[in-house]
Amino acid sequence: MKRCFLITLLLLLFCSLCASEFEKLKALDEQGLQNPDLYYNLGVTYWQTGQSGMASLYFLKALHLDSAHKAARENLNYSIRLSKDRDLYPQRLFLVRVFLEVYDFMNMNRMAVLNLGLLILSSLSLLWYINYDPAKERGLPGLVLGTMLCLLLISVSVSAFKAYRIKGNRQAVLLEESAELRENPEDSAKRVATIHEGVILDIRKTAGDWLFVNLPNGDGGWINGELVGRVRQ
């Protein structure tokens, strides 16, 4: 019996030594560790093994945690450019892209620091305004105070909006080579569209195992939930 145990132990040790970097990353992920670099590296590895759906899913997971993860954003864009459904993604105007870049750059941690900084500046502005020489015109301190309060309000609102979006992230990715979107949540329902691995979906509602999803171009349809991976479980 001791020998059996010893052999089992040796086999397990051997398997663990053979485990590749990929398996180590997967093990960390299965332990529930949340780290954008871990998700990014998993995405790159999945891409290298030909699983573009899983790659996109993990790039999205990295961006879910840290929207300013530039490498994950670039690799996701690269994956989208090579996907069969790339035409489904809308072409955005330059100014919209600029806005979205800034929005993504300001991840939750940067927003937190910005909020704190603006709070301090607003407090100082308020004290400056109140203690300003009453004999003088209060135009400048008033302007500074008003600006700071506006910025603080905007910053807090954006933070709240981002937190709401992160908490309610409904993104998912198709993991199969292809799948059909249907009019109703059943296999026999009329086909709406055929989509391919890696396409990013927005889950709107669920009915049992079926999900009603929106494609990047806004079209919607039902898909079996087992075929997709959700960014936020």
């Binding site: 960390l28 560790l33 949340q34 780290n35 954008p36 670099d37 871990l38 990014y40 590296n41 790159v44 590895t45 891409w47 945690l65 840290d66 530039k70 490498a71 954003r73 670039e74 690799n75 864009n77 690269y78 994956s79 450019r81 892209r97 600029v98 870049e101 939750m108 941690n109 927003m111 937190a112 620091v113 933070s159 937190a163």
Partner: peptide, 27 residues
Amino acid sequence: GLLDGGKAQTLRPMIARDMYPPYRNLM
């Protein structure tokens, strides 16, 4: 990468990390 529309020609490589500390939100 804003001006070129973020059109990367290749996949960016893995990031070398010895450890992956849990990501914590400041808030």
